[in-house]
Design a protein around this nucleic acid. Structure first.
Lengths: 107, 107
DNA sequence: TATTTATTTCTATATTTTTAGAAATATAGA
DNA sequence: TCTATATTTCTAAAAATATAGAAATAAATA
């Protein structure tokens, strides 16, 4: 991952409401949550929620699939992996003081 | 780390210039770099650089110490550790599919 | 087909952020 | 003490973001 993309992803995570949404989805696992579930959990206006979800989806931190009139959102764990790898890469002049986080399941 | 603080830190990392500064410092290790070194590497106005460094320092992603008229900046690795821990905590309904990144040295 | 439900899009306003020139401060050295 | 160097603070303007009401869309159900 390049700096530009990493910064963009980190900026999307850098808003309290969006981070709450994202964390709900990280915890939720592969089935994810519907937009309605998230709205119920966070108690925010639909238009605000929709705006934040769209931004998370745009940078591929989450993905959405429609089932009838319900839209399910779920974390794209590989993107989080890439962000973490970017942040810890070549730490301390290559002295390898950071062991990488491995995201094994949930891909 | 709580959501509020995590979001704040992530927002500070979510700007290309600040992320470049931060990554230089993560790579630099425990001796860090002077403000002048960073300015040379990134080629940006001093006032802009100073503003970004201040923001990174404010959330303790980096620390600064003065030596004469030179200010050295270095990464506070433990903060990065906390952010990563926050992001991967309780992933996938506690199925523990994320192994935590360990930052052992450079504290 | 009419209604309800789930969610988005449109729109506008308030707030925050980014950028950088100019001036200020603080320390070292001549 | 005068000057040069390293860095910050002040200031202002442009751009981006956050928030949410209202209207629109799309699918399920009566």
């Amino acid at each position: 991952m390049k700096t530009q993309e990493a910064a963009h992803c980190l900026a999307e995570l850098g808003n309290v409401t969006r981070l709450q949404i994202y964390r709900l989805l990280v915890k939720a696992g592969k089935n994810g949550l519907s937009v309605g579930d998230i709205q119920l959990a966070l108690n925010i206006p639909g238009s605000t929620l929709s705006h934040h979800i769209r931004r998370l989806a745009k940078v591929k931190l989450i993905e959405q699939n429609k089932a009838g009139r319900t839209i399910f959102c779920k974390s794209q764990y590989n993107k989080l992996q890439e962000i973490i790898d970017f942040l810890v890469d070549k730490c301390c002049e290559g002295e390898a003081c950071l062991e990488k986080t491995k995201i094994s399941a949930c891909q």
